[in-house]
Amino acid sequence: MNSDLVYGLVTGVLFGFLLQRGRVIRYDKQIAALRIQDFTILKFMLSTVVVAMIGTYFLYDLGAVKLSIKPMIVGGVVGGGILFGIGWGLLGYCPGTSVAALAEGRLDALWGIAGSVAGAALYAETFPWIQAKVLTIGDYGKITLPQVFGVNHWVVIAGVTVLAILFFRWAEKKGL
């Protein structure tokens, strides 16, 4: 087993452990977030985003890491986001972490995993049409928010961090 695979396994174990401890791989928690009843999931996700954003850009400034920027294709990102939201609401698990839900004993996640593989196969089936008709709508290439606003990335990082903290305070005050 080469080092890449060991890194994958160890990183996954740590992530899976924290997902379980954060109680975020539960149907009831995920759906309660979508029903605006319990924001455990959002607190977990936004905390991850803020810490990862600060840490990754800090290392980027030191020249220690490369960024992985996805292209902003409106047809793909907006269309895909809407479909993902509908699917997430029905499944009640995020497809990627549904294996963690299964590990907790949630057998319905197995159906979701099977459906996710079928969804990937369906995407492969329709890919030629999607590539020609949807992934050509509003293709802005690999852009970032700092580029769009024309500011240093730390301005955006500070802004997102402040918004996240304000959101956390609001959520705590509302008891969500």
Binding site: K70, P71, I73, G76, V77, G79, G80, G81, I82, L83, F84, G85, I86, G87, W88, G89, L90, L91, G92, Y93, C94, P95, G96, S98, D108, A109, W111, G112, I113, A114, G115, S116, V117, A118, G119, A120, L122, Y123, I130, V134
Partner: peptide
């Protein structure tokens, strides 16, 4: 059945958004 359908749609969307 609903979880399966949800999985199909969510994964299709994830791939479409390149996520």
């Amino acid at each position: 059945v609903v979880a399966f359908i949800g999985g199909v749609i969510a994964m299709y969307g994830a791939r479409l958004a390149d996520g």
